[in-house]
Structure formats: structure tokens, C-alpha cells
């Protein structure tokens, strides 16, 4: 762990000012669950760590548009167990609870969840090259141990994935990220928040270095009754997703009015394809109609030595998630959301 200065911000403005002053070598800390981990790995080497954990951004409240506003510093646990989140955005609650462990969810914050770094083995191992960690050094994952890597939207420079579960649900819900910076406040649509690796895998989102996330806005959702988060992983809990699917349906009887599908574990950002979702509009909620969506979502997929399987697995998971969503939120069983009550 590198030698860093520590300061505790008393206000959002103070936090933003300190971050700007550190000129790229500063990091905010709140839950610390990812940053302290990476500090010990020497992956993150900030000069200045700015503690924002005491800023008044912990509330979960009604938003003016009838949605819900999640404070950036509300913990993952407080968010997942919030009665309004559970009632109106069950896929979000379940996605959060499918991630990490109870301890980590008690610590981790909503803002921090968006800014999680990848779990790619090479990113974590400073003895080896990594374009994300050290631009231009190379990507050994492409020919190496890439089970945890992506199959969609990858580049020749990086095949890492975004590891969050929460963000997959947020992407499906079309949340908006509220940020504050020296140039004032702005709102970033979720689809525009995370970026694909391209030639700059070190850049993971559109947040400016001197901006801070203050809240996440959830728009009103018609999907609460048919929301699922299906997570497929190598053990039953406390593991990152190989593939995960947030599937939301708005049904009129058996007919789909609209659908949302977001994928995790497969790309550098939560993966959505509105064209694929549109295939379901006006269709009945049947497996036959779900299959083309799965095909479309993975049409451009490219597998690597140890993760080719994610393409087939991903398609099957999409179909499963949509089937479960059609059955209704209430029937879904288990933290991984793979099965329903009989």
C-alpha cells in the first residue's frame, strides 16, 4: 500500500475541490470495499484519499418524477432492504443481494458500486501487464486465463468486465446518475455512464475526475410485478457473475407491452440492446419469443479460450430470466434468481 494523505470532506464542494486539487492522483473513499482492496494490491496508488463517508448523501427518498432517489452514500444493504426499493424495484434489491457478502453490502455504497473496478486477474496482478492499469503495456488476458472476462464489446486492448450486480439492474431500470462538480450538477443517463474499453480501457466511465456522484435516480417503473435478476456463477454465493441477467417485463395479460434486458459478466459495462428488447413488444411471453432476444443480444459476441461458453450460457440465462419474469416477481426463489416456486 502506497503512502497517501487522508482528508475528511465536510461538504460536497470540499470533496470536489480536494479531488480537483489532487489532479488525478486523488481518490474518494466511502465504503472502501474496493479501494482498500486495490490499495493493498498496489493497483490503486493515490497520493490523496478523500473521505466522503460522512457527507449527507445517505437518504433514499421520493424523486420529483414519482421515482425514487438513492443517495450515493446509502449502503448497498440499506438500499436493498429499503421497503420502497423492494416494492417498486425488486430486481434492484435482488441484484444487490446477489452481490458480495452481507459484510461488504453493509459497507459498500451505491456510488462506489458504480465505480467498482474489474475483477480481471491481470488487472489485479501488478507483476503483469494490463492496459487498464498501465496503458500500453498489453493485455495478457486475451490469451490467458479469461474465464471472468467479457464476450461483448471487447477490444484488442481489453476484455475486462464490469463486476457489479447492482449496475445491471440499474441499467435495465434506466436509472440516471446525478453528479456534482466544479461546473455544477448534471445527470448522466445510465447507458452513458459506463464506457466500452476501446483503446482507452483505463477510462471506465464518463464521470470527470473532479466530479462526485451524489445520487442515483430511479424513474417510475411499470415492471415491479415482473422483475428478475438471474445470476449464474461458479458457486452458490459470494462469487462474481459468469453471466447475469436483469429482465423486466410490463405485461398486459400474456402480452408484453415493453421489456428490458440487461446483461452482466459479459462486457465492460452493463450490456443492453434496445433493438433486442423491442423484439418482444406486442408479443406473448413465451420461450419461443424469448429465444430471438437472446440470439440478438449475443449476435456480435466474441469468445476467448476460457470463456466461449458464456455466449451459450448467456443466451440460456436470458431465456430463463425472461421466463421467470413472465411468471412474476413473487414466484422467484433463491438469491441467484434462477428458479421459481412450483
Amino acid at each position: 500500500m502506497i503512502n497517501f494523505s487522508y482528508s475528511r470532506a465536510g461538504s460536497v464542494a470540499e470533496a470536489v475541490g480536494a479531488k480537483g486539487k489532487a489532479d488525478g492522483a486523488g481518490r474518494f473513499i466511502a465504503g472502501g470495499t474496493n479501494l482498500v482492496d486495490l490499495l493493498k494490491e498496489n493497483v490503486e496508488r493515490p497520493c490523496a484519499v478523500i473521505d466522503i463517508s460522512r457527507l449527507p448523501l445517505k437518504t433514499i427518498e421520493e424523486a420529483p418524477d414519482g421515482g425514487l432517489r438513492l443517495g450515493a452514500l446509502a449502503t448497498n444493504a440499506d438500499t436493498a432492504y429499503h421497503p420502497e426499493v423492494q416494492r417498486r424495484y425488486p430486481a434492484l434489491s435482488r441484484a444487490i443481494l446477489a452481490g458480495a457478502s452481507a459484510q461488504l453490502r453493509n459497507m459498500a455504497t451505491n456510488g462506489g458500486n458504480l465505480l467498482q473496478r474489474t475483477r480481471c486477474y491481470y488487472f489485479y496482478d501488478v507483476a503483469l501487464p494490463c492496459n487498464k492499469r498501465q496503458p500500453g503495456s498489453g493485455c495478457p488476458a486475451i490469451k490467458g486465463q479469461n474465464r471472468v472476462c467479457g464476450v461483448l464489446g471487447t477490444s484488442d486492448d481489453c476484455i475486462a468486465t464490469h463486476p457489479s450486480d447492482m449496475c445491471i439492474a440499474l441499467a435495465a431500470l434506466e436509472a440516471a446518475v446525478r453528479v456534482s462538480g466544479p461546473r455544477g450538477e448534471r445527470t448522466i443517463p445510465f447507458a452513458e455512464f459506463h464506457t466500452l474499453p476501446g483503446h482507452t480501457p483505463d477510462i471506465e466511465n464518463t464521470l470527470a475526475p473532479d466530479e462526485i456522484i451524489t445520487a442515483i435516480d430511479l424513474p417510475p417503473s411499470p415492471y415491479a410485478g415482473h422483475s428478475v435478476y438471474t445470476k449464474v456463477r461458479d458457486r452458490a454465493s459470494y462469487a462474481f457473475a459468469l453471466v447475469s441477467v436483469a429482465a423486466l417485463l410490463d405485461l398486459d395479460g400474456d402480452t408484453i407491452k415493453s421489456a428490458r434486458v440487461a446483461l452482466g459478466g459479459v462486457a465492460h459495462k452493463p450490456w443492453r440492446l434496445p433493438e433486442a428488447e423491442a423484439l418482444l413488444t406486442g408479443k406473448t411471453a413465451t420461450k419461443e419469443n424469448f429465444l430471438p432476444v437472446a440470439q440478438a443480444l449475443f449476435a456480435g459476441a466474441h469468445g476467448y479460450e476460457h470463456n466461449f461458453f458464456k455466449i451459450e450460457l448467456g443466451k440460456r440465462a436470458v431465456v430463463r430470466a425472461l421466463q421467470l419474469a413472465a411468471r412474476g416477481t413473487a414466484a422467484i426463489k433463491g438469491v441467484n434468481g434462477q428458479t421459481a416456486d412450483a
Binding site: N3, A9, G17
Partner: peptide
């Protein structure tokens, strides 16, 4: 510049961070 806790340190220095 901070209203709250502020401990100096930083970079790959030979000095160790202060305590608070």
C-alpha cells in the same frame, strides 16, 4: 482547506504518513 480531519502524506516518499 478542510473543515474536518486532514493528515499529510502522499506519493512514493521516504517519509511515512502522519498520525491523527
Amino acid at each position: 482547506a478542510f473543515s474536518e480531519l486532514d493528515v499529510a502524506g502522499g506519493g512514493t516518499t521516504t517519509a511515512l504518513p502522519g498520525k491523527s
